[in-house]
Design a protein around this nucleic acid. Structure first.
Lengths: 106, 106
DNA sequence: GGTTTGGTTCGAAAGTAATGGAACTATTAG
DNA sequence: CTAATAGTTCCATTACTTTCGAACCAAACC
């Protein structure tokens, strides 16, 4: 019960706008979100542009995004499946994710 | 030369999306932004719902918003005029501010 | 000029977040 | 069963943020 494979995800009714904005306010986390916008990825596939990033650090970035309600992190085979909670976020905060994703990178 | 009355404001070419998201990710700062969305205010008019907030703290919140490129802070008489840089932000990050301002408060 | 008003900045203390190595867990492959 | 793989969690360290009093500054009024 509540093993490491079954990570908790907040219900959209309890995610806060400021929590989401904070999660997106880190360049590393934002880059992950941009990658996931094209579809789900495993932990290893995600962040390939930073091959030297320690996995504990990447795991922590994911945790912040997950706890803010931005991404899902589900078991898949021996790894994990990371996915953007786009439809749910769009329903609660219309236009926010699109505005962020379509914004200039620099 | 750069007296306390002449605060610096970043050019929109050098404001970052993550910097803006971070500035908006604090409930107190976000509330200030919501107030300024209805038009410019003086420091005293702004944040009337928190009368016991020390002025140094409020000044610091404003500084973060100003340095992120979210608000302007110009001298006006013996006080200051705080204003949202809405048109400029809309031009650089279309839809972002509207999405944030129209989002649910809770 | 002096004083009041409306703020900014400085500095220190407390709180919060990021980082990464080491230990742990779960799944698959052999 | 054992080993390898793919990740999470724990913990300590460091870095950054927040908070607020005290000092400071500039404009307006007398």
């Amino acid at each position: 019960m509540n093993s490491v494979t079954d990570l908790t995800h907040p219900d959209m009714s309890e995610v806060s706008l400021t929590g989401i904005l904070f999660a997106l306010s880190d360049p590393g986390r934002l880059e992950i979100v941009r990658e996931l916008a094209d579809g789900p990825l495993s932990m290893a596939e995600c962040g390939m542009t930073h091959p030297d990033l320690p996995k504990s650090t990447k795991s922590h970035l994911m945790k912040v995004l997950r706890e803010a309600g931005v991404v899902r992190n589900d078991p898949e085979g021996r790894g994990r499946r990371l996915s953007l909670r786009k439809d749910e976020l769009d329903a609660v905060f219309p236009g926010l994710l699109d505005a962020v994703l379509s914004a200039r990178t620099v």
